[in-house]
Simulated scan of single mutants.
Amino acid sequence: MSETVTGGCQCGRVRYEVGIDDDDAYLCHCRMCQRATGGVSAALKGVERARVRWTAQEPDRYRSSPIAHRGFCSACGTPLTFEFSDADSTHMDLTVGSFDQPGRFRPTQHFAIESRHAAWVDTGALPGIRSEDNPSTRDRWIRTLGHLPD
């Protein structure tokens, strides 16, 4: 059963709607994704290209390798897509963090494990701190916005 979900970049310049059939996603550990996102992996949701509708402006695209390009917002820098460049590619990936409700998605596999940084895979036992419990961060938000961001 298909459901339409929404997402976009941090500044709102690029927005999308996409029909999805499940909440399956994956973590890509390839060096290209690490460099493109600045993280140790990229959380991605594979979708059918034809089911993506850009509702504001389309993303800018960067040819990140001879076989692919990546969509991003040139205003705020948000990474949005991974797309193979060949014309017959019917699928693409959207970054999980760019969805309006990213918490719904669940990773079902790791890709490019030859580049995986094992110390960053299972971090559940590490101590955690909430944003509002860090006075430096909390006070800056309150001074600037009058409240913590969503």
Results as ranks from 00 to 15, higher is better:
M1S: 12
M1C: 06
S2E: 14
T4P: 02
G7R: 00
C9N: 01
C11P: 01
C11K: 07
C11G: 05
C11R: 06
R13P: 02
R15H: 05
R15F: 03
Y16L: 05
E17R: 13
E17C: 08
V18L: 05
G19S: 15
G19I: 10
G19M: 14
D23N: 15
D23G: 10
D24A: 15
Y26C: 11
L27C: 10
L27H: 11
L27E: 09
L27Y: 08
L27D: 02
C28S: 05
C30I: 12
C30Q: 03
M32D: 12
R35H: 13
A36F: 12
A36Y: 08
A36H: 13
S41I: 07
V47T: 09
V47H: 02
V47N: 00
R53W: 02
T55C: 06
A56K: 14
E58W: 07
P59W: 00
R61L: 06
R61D: 03
R61H: 10
R61K: 08
S64K: 05
P66V: 05
I67Q: 11
I67H: 11
I67D: 10
G71M: 02
F72I: 14
C73P: 00
C73A: 08
S74D: 13
S74L: 12
A75V: 12
C76N: 09
P79Y: 02
L80Y: 04
T81Q: 03
E83Q: 13
E83A: 12
F84Q: 03
L94G: 00
L94Y: 00
T95E: 02
T95H: 08
T95Q: 05
S98D: 02
F105V: 03
R106P: 09
T108K: 11
H110M: 04
A112L: 09
R116L: 12
R116M: 15
D122S: 07
D122N: 11
T123F: 08
G124N: 13
G124C: 09
G128S: 15
R130Y: 03
S131N: 12
S131A: 14
S131R: 15
P135L: 14
R138I: 08
D139K: 01
D139Q: 04
I142M: 10
T144E: 14
L145D: 01
G146Q: 04
G146W: 06
H147K: 13
L148G: 04
L148W: 11
L148M: 15
P149W: 03
D150F: 08
